[in-house]
Design a protein around this nucleic acid. Structure first.
Lengths: 219, 219
DNA sequence: AGAATAGTGTCTCTCAGACAATATAGG
DNA sequence: CCTATATTGTCTGAGAGACACTATTCT
C-alpha cells in the first residue's frame, strides 16, 4: 500500500556553470541552514509537490529564489539516491546543470566561482555529483551547441570558438571551425549587427534553435 | 520543516531492451495491479527506503522480482516527474534501461517483446519515457560499447558488427569496423575459443572492461 | 602606416569506406 | 571442389588541419 511506504526525501541540486578566464567554473553557494550550514555547496532545495509542476520547475524556482539566477539553459544531469547521502535520511536528489554567461550572475547571493576541477570537499555527495557533471559536460559539449549557452544570446564567431576551446582544452583551427559550424547550420547571422568590442567589428550570430543541438561528430 | 512537506511518490521504471530479428525490442510487461491493471507497461515499482540501498538497487530488485531478469547492464536514463503522470498523485520516477541478450529473457512472466519504435499507447507517461530512451539509446550506442551488452558475454566480430548495424540502421564496412574496434582496444580475443555456428569457425571475443566504454567518435 | 582581429582560399595528409584477395571450415 | 563465412590487404576520395592571404577598423 502507498501509505505503508517510508517516502524518501526528494530534492533538486543545481550546478550553475559559467565560463570565466577561459576556464569552466561552478558557482557554489554558502548554505544558510543546517545541515552543513555555512559550507559551500551546490544550489539545492526541496521539491514541493504542492507548488512545483515538475522537478525541472522546482530546479528553476530554487535557482531563482536562492541564487537569483535565471539560466539560459537548464538540463537534467541524473538522479543521486541512497540512505547515506543526506543526514536527514534516505533521499533522492535530481541534479541539473544550469548554463549562463558569467556577467549575468548576481553578486550579492553568497555565490563563489570555483574552477570546475578544483571544487572538492563539498557536503552531501556533491563531490560525486560535480564529478559526474564535469564528465558529462566535457563529453556532451564537444558535439553539441552547449558551449553557446555560456555566451550572451548574440555572440561573434571568435567568442564561440573561444568558448569551445575553453571547454575542449585545446586550440581549434579557425577556418575549419568556421567551415564546420557553417555546415551544421546551427547559428544564424544577425543582419546589420556587429560587435565593436575588437579592432575590426565582427558579425554577430545567434543560435538557429532555442534548445541544444547535438551533432553527429565532434567539432 | 521536513515534516510539513508533502512527500512525492518515488518509483523506478525499467526499459528492458533486447535485440531480436535485427531490430531493437522493448520487453513490456502486463501489469497485475491497479492503476492500469492488465495493460502492457514498463517494468516499474516503488523505491523502498527500508530495503533498497539506492535507486539502482531498487531497479535491480524490481527487475528481478517482477520480471525475473538479471540484466547484463543497467543504466540510469533520467527522472520523470510531475503531478499528472500518475493517478496516485505527484510522483517522480527514475527511469533505467536494462540490456541483455534476448535468449536470457524468461518466457513465463507476462513479458511481450515489441519493436522499440512501435510501442505506443502505454499508461502513465511511459510513451514519453520510451521515446526519450529510444533517442538516448540511438545516440549513445553509436559511440560506445553499449550494443555489446545485447550479446552474450562471448561473441564473434560478425555478431558484434551485426549488433551495431541493427542499432545504427545501416550496414557497416566490415574491414573498417575491424580496424576501428581494434584501435579502440575495447574487446579482447579469447584464446583457443571459436564459434562453430557458421561455415568457418570465428574467433570469440569479450569486452576488455566490465562497464560501458565511450569513444571519442562514432564507429 | 601599423597593429590587431575578422574572414577567405588553398594545399596536404590522414583516415574511413570500397572492394579485392586470401583463408578455413563443412558438405 | 564448391560454398559460405572469416579475415586481411590495398586503393581512393572526402574532410580536417595548416597556413598564407586579404579585409577592416582603431591608434
Amino acid at each position: 500500500m502507498i501509505e505503508d511506504l517510508i517516502r524518501p526525501i526528494l530534492t533538486v541540486d543545481v550546478i550553475p556553470l559559467v565560463l570565466k578566464d577561459g576556464c569552466m567554473h561552478v558557482a557554489l553557494q554558502r548554505r544558510d541552514k543546517a545541515p552543513y550550514a555555512n559550507e559551500m555547496a551546490l544550489v539545492g532545495g526541496y521539491v514541493r509537490a504542492d507548488e512545483d509542476e515538475s522537478a525541472t520547475a522546482a530546479a528553476l524556482r530554487v535557482l531563482r529564489e536562492k541564487a537569483g539566477i535565471t539560466p539560459r539553459l537548464l538540463e537534467q544531469l541524473m538522479t543521486f539516491s541512497g540512505a547515506g547521502r543526506d543526514p536527514r535520511g534516505w533521499s533522492a536528489s535530481i541534479a541539473y546543470y544550469a548554463l549562463q554567461p558569467a556577467e549575468s550572475l548576481p553578486t550579492d547571493r553568497n555565490l563563489m566561482l570555483t574552477p570546475l576541477d578544483q571544487a572538492r570537499g563539498l557536503p552531501f555527495d556533491h563531490d560525486a555529483i560535480l564529478a559526474k557533471a564535469a564528465d558529462r559536460w566535457r563529453r556532451r559539449a564537444a558535439y553539441s551547441t552547449l558551449p553557446a549557452f555560456l555566451l550572451p544570446p548574440h555572440f561573434t564567431l571568435s567568442a564561440l570558438r573561444a568558448a569551445y576551446e575553453s571547454v575542449l582544452g585545446r586550440a581549434l583551427n579557425d577556418s575549419a571551425f568556421r567551415r564546420k559550424i557553417d555546415e551544421l547550420r546551427v547559428i544564424q547571422p544577425i543582419a546589420g549587427a556587429s560587435s565593436k568590442a575588437t579592432a575590426r567589428p565582427a558579425q554577430l550570430y545567434r543560435l538557429s534553435h532555442d534548445g541544444v543541438t547535438e551533432f553527429d561528430r565532434t567539432l
